[in-house]
Nucleic acid binder design. Structure first.
Lengths: 233, 233
DNA sequence: GCAATTTCTTGATCGAGATCAAGCCGCATC
DNA sequence: GATGCGGCTTGATCTCGATCAAGAAATTGC
């Protein structure tokens, strides 16, 4: 990658502005903010920010994959969320006392847009009509975490895997084809499981005829049946 | 309890206004909001609102204890938070799509002030300078949940109990006397443990000389030592 | 193409915490 | 003081998922 100054071109601009957080921003304010932003390339495994580090910016994922991770005693780590392309992340940190509450590491070679908090917050203060969007964003994260808490504390490995797969399914009817968003070990960590257990659950589902696995793509012949199986696990 | 119309008197007003959420409110707006609020008595075990129910109001706990609970398959339940006297709760629900994400049940006979969302939100929209307080509140909840997630997914029963007890300790030095905020079974549920396991951990701590237990009051001769014990569990 | 590394699967064992089952203590009511 | 009940403790067993240990399959490098 030798483009010395990767540029935020209009197609990237459009992708960022499509996020709910920015959809209500005026052209001028948005352009001024991106003026102060820059593109960063991340190698596989590279750490974008550490837990507890002073937070100066939030990010938009252009390509690749970023994992948000909390660290426990003895190197233990739990993936809180696997960020996908075209997602904003860490924007809620603006109001969280200036420190990142989790670590962000690239799960693949990745590209992000780094958007500094200072001008973002300044614009927000000058345009309080933009705050409801921010509140909505924080609320979504709250919802997500409450759901996670429920899954972690009250569901078995079988149920967690099944719920996760069902969440990946498009809403509609039957015979869905889905694709895991990351390598299986990362998905396992996201679910609070070891790779071994994750593999075994997938095996169980395969033997029960509820799932066909090929590499990272999964075929679910009957999501309803999967739901029932989860409920009775 | 035969006071037919329990009244929100000035001492109660003062208690509510001391919360960060309302400290910046004008006298007039605040008085108008309380005009539309009312006091409710709850029996032990009474459910204030259900998970998924349409959210019309949030609450301030005057007396007693309220537990926020998520329900899992098969009657399993996890206490997300034990609300204490003088706490606001469910206020974040205002931005959460109109449904309560958890259930609230009285852990003791309790008294709450029920504050309806409609006038609250109307005032907020008319006075956007009050929104930063709301953002700060949501951020605190986010922080809390991220911490909970870490505890649940990466710590042993020993560590969870120890962290919890240390959180209850006043900041300072040594030989602390603390009091459990609820009956032990509720604390256990809050920690994602069975009462039996909680009791056993307390027993372990007692035998290790790190804790003296008397009913609900606990004496911790050396918090530092407790911290060390947790880290090496 | 073949070796080397990484990813995934499968099997055997282990352990923390849940569950099941008594028993104990404090406290109320009569 | 007996009786009953709720809250807590203690003990025995069971279960799920982690851990340890190989091996198979896919990817990468030369």
């Amino acid at each position: 990658m030798m483009s010395a100054h990767p540029v935020i071109d209009s197609s990237i601009r459009a992708r960022i502005q499509r996020t709910p957080l920015f959809s209500a921003w005026s052209e001028g304010a948005f352009a001024a903010l991106l003026e102060q932003s820059r593109i960063r390339q991340l190698d596989l495994g590279e750490i974008l920010f550490h837990e507890g580090e002073e937070a100066r910016a939030f990010y938009f994922l252009l390509a690749g994959e970023v994992d948000l991770i909390t660290l426990g005693a003895g190197g233990r780590e739990k993936i809180v969320e696997i960020i996908q392309v075209d997602d904003l992340f860490a924007e809620a940190v603006a109001f969280l006392g200036g420190r990142y509450p989790v670590q962000a590491a690239a799960g693949l070679a990745s590209t992000v847009v780094e958007i500094p908090f200072a001008p973002f917050m300044a614009t927000l203060q000058g345009h309080q009509e933009l705050m409801p969007q921010m509140l909505a964003r924080l609320s979504m994260r709250l919802h997500y975490l409450i759901k996670e808490l429920r899954h972690l504390s009250m569901e078995s490995a079988n149920q967690r895997v099944a719920s996760y797969l069902l969440d990946l399914c498009p809403a509609g009817g039957e015979s869905v084809e889905i694709c895991l968003p990351a390598k299986k070990a990362a998905v396992a960590a996201r679910l609070g499981l070891t790779p071994e257990t994750f593999s075994r659950v997938l095996g169980r589902l395969r033997k029960a005829g509820l799932l066909r696995v090929d590499k990272r793509s999964l075929h679910i012949p009957d999501p309803q049946a999967l739901r029932r199986w989860a409920d009775s696990s």
